[in-house]
Design a protein around this nucleic acid. Structure first.
Length: 166
DNA sequence: AACAGGATGCAA
DNA sequence: TGCATCCTGTTT
């Protein structure tokens, strides 16, 4: 059950979301790449120094979309996990479309699905008119690496999960 | 009020 | 490697 899984820490959820179906307004794809972010124990996270107007979403209830704008132009989609009060979120970094197109990069994913901070940040997923997420029957093989784009602390954590493509 | 930098992507 | 471009958190 997805609801139950989303109560778990981001690193657990991140790997379980590999192979999951993400859909929004007749567009859909298979999640191929994720990253986990947490709170006080994760210097690379927006939530590291506690809640702010932006990061407070990460401290909220699970099953909510956390969408932020980066570099002035790209939106990034996260799914908040863990109960309210604990910061945790999974960044959706890659999606495979039915036609074989691979959207590699969080900005591309949001652009394709039309996800923006203005419209989707704070939205509860799996409600009508919202983002839809459904788990795969089983977790496909994957590999782990350090997260992309972080420069100093946090490189020791292997919290990026990538679907293996044999 | 001003500033430095960012969980990126694309072109060169 | 450089750059577009604006939001965020921090500092003045």
């Amino acid at each position: 059950m997805l609801k139950k899984l989303l109560q778990s820490p981001a690193p657990i959820v991140a790997q379980k979301l590999l192979g999951a179906t993400l859909s929004h307004k007749h567009k859909q794809g298979l999640i191929t790449e994720t990253e986990a972010y947490r709170g006080a124990d994760d210097p690379a996270s927006h939530a590291y120094k506690g809640p702010t107007p932006r990061s407070k979403i990460m401290f909220g209830p699970s099953g909510v979309a956390y969408v932020y704008l980066i570099y002035g132009m790209h939106h990034c989609l996260n799914i908040v996990t863990e109960p309210e009060g604990t910061a945790s979120a999974v960044l959706i970094r890659g999606v495979l479309l039915p036609d074989g197109t691979h959207l590699n990069g969080p900005g591309k994913v949001c652009k394709y699905f039309g996800i923006t901070r203005q419209h989707h940040n704070g939205q509860i997923i799996n409600t009508p008119e919202s983002l839809q997420l459904s788990l795969p029957s089983k977790t496909p093989p994957f590999s782990q690496t350090p997260r992309i784009g972080i420069k100093k602390e946090g490189l020791d954590k292997l919290w990026r999960y990538v679907l293996k493509t044999p």
